[in-house]
Structures are given as C-alpha cells and as structure tokens.
C-alpha cells in the first residue's frame, strides 16, 4: 500500500492543480495576515473558508483523480498487489497531497508572521487539524462515490450534490426542524444533528476553541456542559475519526467486490 501511496503522492504533488491549490492557500494566508494584521480575525475568516472549500476540493479532486487514473488502476490491478492496497494507497495519496497543500499553504505565511510566539497557535493548529480531517473525510466519500458509479458525469453530479447537501442543505433542514419543534427541548437533538454532518462538526469544534463556547452555552445546561468542558472537544474529535474511518472501510469493502 505504501508504494502505491508514494507514487500517487509523487504524481499528485507535481500536478498543476496541487500547485494551484497550494498557491491559493499561500496567497490567502498572506493576504489575510498582511492586509489585516489581526491573527484572531484571520483565524475566523480561515475557518469560514476551510469548512466550505476543503470539502468541495476534496470531493471534486477525489472523484476526478479516481476517474482519471482508471486505466492506471487497471494496470496496477494486473500487478501482484492486493486490491485494497491499491485503492487505499491511491486514496491516501490524494488525501495526503491535498492536506499538505493546505497545511503548507497556510502554515508558511502564519509561521513567517510569527505564529509560534502568538497564543493563537492552538486555534490555528486546530484549524489545520480539522481541515485535514475534512480532506480525509470528503476525499474518502468521493472515492466511494466514484467506485460505485461507472458513469463519470453521474459521479461528479453526486459528489457536487454531496457537498451541497453537507455544506448548505443539511443546515437548512436542520434550522427548519429546530424552528418547527421550538417548543420541545432541542439541545440534545441539535448536538446529535451536528454530529451527523462532518462540516457542522468541524465548525462547532473550531467555534468551541474560538472563545465562543460561552456564547453557545447561552442556550442551556446541555450546551454548556458540552461546549464548556473537554467533553465537547473529545466527542467531536472522536466523531471526526469515525467519520473518517467509515468511508475508508466502505471503500476497502467495495474495492474487494468490484469488477474492472
């Protein structure tokens, strides 16, 4: 698996798109820091961008890579390599190169700006950690979509739909149900609903650390307990891990049963 990972990764880090993606973050980081000069505001702006853009790029890039490397995959399938190794190797290759673009692209300007002496370093690293998680999750989901759909157009359609659903539609339905059932106690429901969407989960995880936890705690004891203690951080991170592992397992399962 690591050989495949290595080659996919090398292939990708030399692709034009990785550079574009990397340069985008680099530029974003510099612009935010040097035009703004306010680290904590930059972190908030970055959060807004990361939780929307990372899933989008992850899904699109994942699906694109999978379809584009179809023939190469066939070449590999004829080699004495386990199937799961091929797909997981490719998956981690894509996910790692995307994550690297993100981490380096944002890390360099922040490091130059003097992040290590600032107390925003924890917020910032949390931002990168969730960004990496989102990359892992959405690339894995994209691979799942691609492996289940022979038709490229359908695959792209589903992946954009997935992103749209997770980034926007889910929250709309969530909000509607909250308003619809406003006379019932909703705190447990809303926490649960947050857990079922990795984008919402990452958002709350970052907000948790951006000192807004008390603001969220304003609604009641359940929120307060969740957001005010380490419990929230712990549960959110474990849920993100679950969100990462589930599609990877399905990918491995599907890879074993697929004809090429």
């Amino acid at each position: 698996m690591f050989k495949i990972l290595k080659y996919s990764f090398y292939d990708l880090i030399r692709s034009r798109w990785s550079y574009v993606y990397f340069l985008f973050y680099l530029l974003l980081g510099f612009v935010l820091l040097f035009l703004n000069n306010d680290l904590s505001k930059a972190v908030i702006t970055l959060m807004n961008i990361i939780i929307i853009l990372v899933p989008l790029i992850g899904t699109i890039f994942g699906v694109m890579y999978f379809y584009n490397s179809r023939e190469f995959t066939e070449l590999l399938l004829a080699q004495p390599i386990k199937r799961t190794s091929i797909f997981l190797g490719q998956y981690f290759g894509v996910a790692c190169s995307l994550s690297l673009s993100l981490i380096l692209g944002l890390g360099i300007p922040f490091a130059l700006y003097g992040l290590f002496e600032s107390n925003a370093i924890f917020d910032f690293s949390l931002l990168l950690v969730t960004g990496t998680f989102l990359t892992l999750i959405f690339t894995a989901m994209a691979f799942n979509i691609a492996i289940s759909n022979e038709n490229k157009i359908m695959g792209f359609g589903y992946s954009v739909l997935l992103w749209l659903f997770m980034a926007v539609i889910y929250d709309g339905l969530f909000l509607m149900s909250l308003i619809l059932f406003e006379e019932y106690p909703l705190d447990n429901f809303s926490l649960l609903a947050t857990m079922f969407n990795p984008i919402d989960l990452s958002r709350t995880l970052i907000l948790l650390k951006l000192d807004i936890s008390a603001l969220l705690g304003y609604t009641g004891a359940v929120f307060k307990k969740f957001f005010g203690t380490q419990l929230g951080l712990f549960i959110s991170i474990s849920m993100l891990c679950l969100w990462t592992l589930a599609p990877i397992f399905r990918l491995a399962w599907k890879a074993k049963r697929k004809d090429f």
């Binding site: 969530f174 909000l175 308003i179 958002r203 907000l207 807004i212 304003y218 929120f223």
Partner: peptide
C-alpha cells in the same frame, strides 16, 4: 432574530447556510 426566537439555533453560527 432567529436565535432570539429559538436559542438552540445558535449551533448554526457561522454556517454557510446562515450566511446565505
């Protein structure tokens, strides 16, 4: 305004849907 009405909706703070 929505948060005033249904406080639990604060959990959607800074989501894209809310921005829209």
């Amino acid at each position: 305004y929505i948060v005033n009405r249904t406080p639990e909706t604060i959990i959607l703070l800074r989501s894209l849907f809310m921005d829209i």
